[in-house]
Simulated scan of single mutants.
Amino acid sequence: MRGAEPDEVEPRGARFRRVARVVLLDPDDRILLLHGYEPEDPARTWWFTPGGGLEGAETREEAALRELVEETGITDIDLGPVLWTRYCSFPFDGRRWDQDEWYYLARTRRTEPTPRPRALTDLENRSLAGLRWWTSAELSAARETVYPTRLAELLRTLLDEGPPSAPVVLAPEIV
């Protein structure tokens, strides 16, 4: 996650943060996930896709690419279509985060371990434990918390059927 950007107000009056996330797959169809934790409670952990909030006037595509480089150091990717969108709301680092997230498909030829992240924010430095590649089977068998919560099922469908013809709207997740 990036530092807090100015909130925007959508028509219903709810405050939200526009976010671009990346479903990054390697040549073996493994997905790259970040391992995060609550800064004040490091025992509370979860896995999630790279990505974060838009900065200034950047597009979601630009934010997806920037965030991927900042959080993983990976630059050799092919950014594909938006797979899924969702609204989520969760407490983190002493505040509530309300986000409108778009998940982009991306491919990389890189299979070796990911280099150290390049440009983490202070909050990311205080809340990221690492990252790893997951197979679909590993993700399906995981007993750890993963966001979005249906990621294993969504990834299996993506690998079996390919990208959807239009972005799939996921059910809101409010924690």
Rank of each mutant, 00 (worst) to 15 (best):
Y147R: 05
R66L: 02
L151C: 07
W46E: 06
L25V: 10
W133M: 01
D28Y: 03
S165Q: 13
D26E: 08
L34Q: 07
T72G: 04
E101Y: 03
D160N: 15
D160V: 14
T45F: 03
P27S: 12
P11D: 14
L33C: 05
R44Y: 04
Y103D: 06
V146Q: 09
V22K: 02
M1R: 00
E124Y: 03
Y104N: 00
Y103C: 03
L79I: 05
D160M: 14
R109M: 01
G51Y: 00
P11V: 14
G51S: 01
W97G: 01
E38F: 06
D41F: 07
L151K: 04
L105F: 14
F90H: 12
T45M: 13
Y104T: 02
T135Q: 10
L159Q: 15
A63G: 08
E61W: 06
Y103L: 11
C88L: 09
M1A: 05
A4Y: 13
I74K: 00
P6K: 08
Q99K: 00
R18P: 09
P39W: 07
L120A: 10
S140E: 15
T114F: 07
T121K: 01
V175Q: 15
L120C: 10
E153N: 13
P148I: 02
L34V: 00
E124R: 06
L151E: 00
E101I: 04
S165N: 12
A119E: 07
D122M: 12
P172A: 13
A63L: 02
R86N: 09
G53L: 08
Y104I: 00
T72C: 07
R110E: 04
R86M: 14
I174W: 12
R96I: 15
G53D: 09
G130N: 08
G53N: 03
P148F: 09
Y37K: 09
W102T: 05
A152E: 02
D122T: 15
P6M: 08
W102V: 09
E61Y: 05
R132N: 09
L151G: 07
P172N: 07
L25R: 06
W47V: 03
E112W: 04
S89D: 00
R44L: 05
E161S: 15
C88N: 05
G53F: 11
V69H: 07
P115I: 03
V168S: 10
R143N: 14
E61C: 11
L105M: 12
C88T: 00
G53Y: 11
L33K: 01
C88V: 01
L158N: 06
E61S: 11
G53E: 10
W84G: 06
P117Q: 01
P39M: 10
R18L: 09
T45N: 05
F90K: 06
S165K: 15
P115N: 10
P42A: 05
G3M: 10
D26L: 07
T121H: 00
T135K: 13
A171S: 12
L120Q: 12
F90R: 04
P11I: 13
T85Q: 07
A129C: 07
S89F: 04
E144V: 14
E101F: 03
V23E: 04
G80S: 10
A171Q: 11
P6E: 08
T75N: 01
E138A: 13
